[in-house]
Computed example of a mutant assay.
Amino acid sequence: MSASFDQYQKRKLISSYFSVVVSIALVLFLLGCLGLLVLNAKTISDNFKEQVVVTIYLNDSAKEVEVKQLEKSLAMAEYTKSSIYISKEEAAEMMKAEYGEDFLDNVGQNPLQNSIDVHLKASFVTSEILADIVEDLSQKDFIQEVRYDNDLVELMNNNVKKITFWVLVISALFTLIAVLLINSSIRLAVYSKRFIIKTMQMVGATKSFIRRPFILKSVQLGIIGAVVALIGMAIVLYYLNSTFPELELLQKPVIISMLFIGVFALGVLITWISTFIATQRFLNLKTDQLYY
């Protein structure tokens, strides 16, 4: 009978520890993934901004030397990320590939123009800067027109500001929730041993002596949960880097390492503080209060 009860108690203890580890791991994993989003928010927004294309349409009378000089000046411009010259023949082939038929058969001659597509650096993708760039380029006689989607640029910049604000708010809120959830799990684990705590106190054990094993065990569970969370974060990071290589997520080893260390330290710190507070609470309770 005693052996059966001991096995039951052991299974119950293991189950309690397992649920604490799972709670810590899940909360830290979600918090870590949110941290990845926050740290890479600028990279993600910059990547979207750099997809905006400024198209420079050239006159048919433009001389080759003028076009080459323009290409060279664009390549050297501080606002240019990349630029590519597209001839009217290449543009016609692109339209044929996109629509599945050769529109030149109906038109007779190629109405398209030679052009240069320019992708700007993210910091220059604002309505004001783009307007200055367009005005400067339009002064050249061999340039017929410069086009870009101004509505898209304004919408993108406004949304980036809103998203950045709400991501920060959600991050702060989620951090608070993470602390409360881990604290709740630790308190439940300590609550199940409240009578042991009070018994040790009644036989003369000091508060620090009673707290020590509880804190050590909780910190161990916190470390295990943090390691599980970090493994999950590493898998997510590898997947995102493979799926979206343009974000260059692994090109920031120092920042990524600091995030991983921060998640690990947070797991240890929260479990330590939560256990300290929980054990202190039961140590200060009177014996008859343990039943409530």
Results as ranks from 00 to 15, higher is better:
F5S: 13
Q9I: 13
K12F: 05
K12G: 14
L13K: 10
I14K: 05
Y17Q: 09
S19P: 01
S23Q: 06
G32E: 01
C33W: 06
L36P: 02
L37R: 02
I44L: 10
S45W: 11
S45A: 15
F48G: 04
F48D: 01
K49S: 11
V52S: 05
V52M: 12
T55C: 07
Y57S: 02
V65Q: 12
A77R: 00
K81L: 13
S83D: 07
S87Q: 04
K88Q: 01
A91N: 06
K96T: 12
E101C: 00
L104K: 05
D105Q: 09
D105P: 00
Q109P: 00
L112Q: 00
I116G: 05
D117S: 11
V118S: 04
V118H: 07
S123R: 12
S123F: 02
S123E: 12
F124E: 03
V125M: 04
V125D: 03
T126M: 03
S127I: 05
I129T: 14
A131R: 09
S138Y: 05
K140Y: 09
D141N: 13
N150A: 12
D151G: 08
E154R: 10
L155F: 12
N159I: 01
K162E: 07
T164N: 10
L168D: 11
V169D: 08
I170E: 08
S171I: 02
S171R: 07
A172F: 08
T175A: 14
L176E: 02
L180P: 08
L181M: 13
I182M: 05
S184Q: 10
S185H: 00
R187W: 07
V190M: 02
R194L: 05
F195E: 03
I196W: 07
A205H: 04
A205T: 02
S208F: 11
F209P: 07
F209Y: 10
F214A: 04
L216G: 09
S218T: 00
Q220M: 14
Q220A: 14
L221I: 10
G222R: 01
V228G: 06
G232Q: 09
L240W: 04
S242R: 11
F244E: 10
F244M: 12
P245S: 11
E246C: 10
E246G: 15
L247C: 12
L250K: 13
S257N: 13
M258D: 04
G262R: 03
A265S: 13
G267I: 08
L269I: 15
I277A: 15
A278C: 01
Q280G: 15
R281P: 01
R281G: 02
F282N: 02
N284P: 02
N284G: 12
L285C: 09
L285K: 15
K286R: 08
Q289T: 13
